[in-house]
Design a protein around this nucleic acid. Structure first.
Lengths: 176, 176
DNA sequence: TTAACTGATTGCAAATTGCAAGCAGTTGCT
DNA sequence: AGCAACTGCTTGCAATTTGCAATCAGTTAA
């Protein structure tokens, strides 16, 4: 194990791991979109990643300990990717980045509603979401589905659909 | 103004602006190191950025509204770079990234002490630091130096030097 | 006059990216 | 049995980006 790192600074090391145009996008889709398979990631993202780049990044993310890869019992050729604890704990980073981006960059309303909600939800919501991700990806029973709370990803998705519905109505009422 | 963006997602847009190997490093050095000039940034960083990359990134960061550029009165050819409010408000992002990197990546103790301290200081410390940055870079009097508090950058620097001093002593006591 | 310093630029090789096509194996449908 | 759709992933190739070294013209202090 050599250390070809530019420096031991935590900011720099994080940039070395996640500082490219696609790694965070992949983790975002797994975290907030619940995607676990290659083709899902290839097709479901807004940004349209190329298959060779996706393959390369998945390999690197596994090597870096951000993801694990396992066989999917339903299909002998299918691989299922899981977030590691390290990746799950990126949630606060995502939340801060989302809040910052929503404030300072030209985001679309329907795609920023999740970030806004996650920001407003604060630590309690982040904690719940991380528990749910640990259930999905690590099998930790603490985050198992409960009747007394709606899963965070579902809350965010509902809000997204609500914005889309409202925008659709506005388009109907005020056609160009 | 066209929008050649991959998507309107806040995470994606932030990646488009800051998702490369050098932009965050430059902002880090300006924020935590207090560097404001080209040559300072070129020579003071741990990672050793090349001058053409630095010039390119500074240009982009100015175009993206993360930095402003002004003449330095002391030298007709000297430029002084300032953080904008948008860049200053990246502090919580830096704090979260620093905390995450310190936990999950092979950081060196002396370079992660700042991140640890900033994490422990929480919002009150972040607020104070942002006020001080607004004073330095935007001239906002709210963050002007006060006798009743030590500037955050100085607190972090003192802690860094303390770690270095301690490690130096350990080296003296247990020579290889 | 001269040496050091200012923010850059240039040339060039290497690495990375992005696009399109293709691959071998698996599965489900008929 | 046969075939289309789907699985993760590879390959070829052009365009872009990166990183290194050298260099530049103007400025300043000695």
């Amino acid at each position: 194990m050599d250390q070809p790192h530019r420096s031991g600074c935590p900011i720099n090391l994080t940039v070395e791991v996640l500082g490219d145009k696609w790694s965070l996008i992949i983790l975002r889709d797994m975290m907030f979109g619940g995607t676990r398979h290659f083709r899902e990631l290839l097709g479901n993202s807004q940004e349209g990643i190329a298959s060779n780049i996706l393959a390369d990044r998945l390999k690197k993310l596994v090597a870096q300990g951000m993801l694990t890869k396992a066989d999917d019992p339903s299909h002998k050729q299918k691989a299922i990717y899981s977030l590691t604890e390290a990746a799950i704990e990126l949630l606060p980073v995502f939340a801060q980045i989302g809040a910052w981006g929503s404030k300072w960059l030209p985001v679309s309303e329907e795609l920023s509603i999740r970030a806004t909600l996650l920001d407003e939800g604060g630590w309690p919501m982040w904690q719940q979401f991380m528990e749910e991700l640990r259930w999905e990806h690590l099998g930790d029973p603490v985050g198992a589905p409960r009747e007394d709370r709606v899963p965070v990803r579902e809350q965010l998705q509902v809000a997204y659909l609500e914005v889309m519905r409202r925008k659709g109505r506005q388009l109907d009422e005020q056609p160009a």
